[in-house]
């Protein structure tokens, strides 16, 4: 008896979602890196030019966005280590889902610890 296929979404569970997140965070970090090299290059123009642009990093909106950037870097770096473990460690594939949750847990804990410290500076006087 023929059964109706249950949709075409690839059900790769956390293995798939970690891959999706790795791509999205990677692209985001890449474009930030382009901007960050250009803004740092302003030190070669003049102290005033650099200071004016770097002040925008201390504004409330960019300050909050930096938490997202730090979170993206943490996830991408830690998940990269997970990818290396899957590739080179004989038990990598067995523990890949557990390692994904460890990556998420460490990322959330470190962002949670950094958030009050950073926001106190961004919103303080």
């Amino acid at each position: 008896m023929a059964t109706i296929p249950a949709g075409t979404l690839y059900r790769g569970r956390v293995g798939m979602w970690s891959w999706v997140l790795h791509r999205i965070t990677g692209v985001g970090i890449f474009f930030f890196l382009l901007v960050h090299i250009l803004d740092t290059a302003l030190v070669r123009v003049s102290p005033e030019a650099y200071n004016v642009v770097i002040e925008s990093y201390k504004t409330p909106i960019v300050g909050v966005a930096e938490l997202g950037l730090v979170g993206a870097i943490l996830f991408h770096g830690l998940n990269g280590l997970r990818v290396i473990a899957v590739d080179f460690w004989s038990k990598g594939t067995k523990f890949q889902a557990l390692m994904f949750w460890a990556v998420m847990a460490i990322t959330i804990v470190l962002v949670a610890a950094f958030t009050p410290v950073h926001l106190a500076r961004v919103f303080g006087e």
């Binding site: 030190v43 102290p47 650099y50 200071n51 770097i54 990093y57 201390k58 300050g63 930096e66 730090v70 870097i73 770096g77 990269g80 280590l81 950094f114 410290v117 950073h118 500076r121 961004v122 303080g124």
Partner: peptide
């Protein structure tokens, strides 16, 4: 890059006054 970038983030955004201290000097 994990070693390079996280050291960069800690020295520029965590220790001292963090982002408030960053300027030309």
């Amino acid at each position: 890059l994990i070693v390079l970038v996280f050291t960069h983030l800690i020295s520029n955004l965590v220790v001292g006054e963090g982002i408030k201290a960053i300027d030309f000097a």
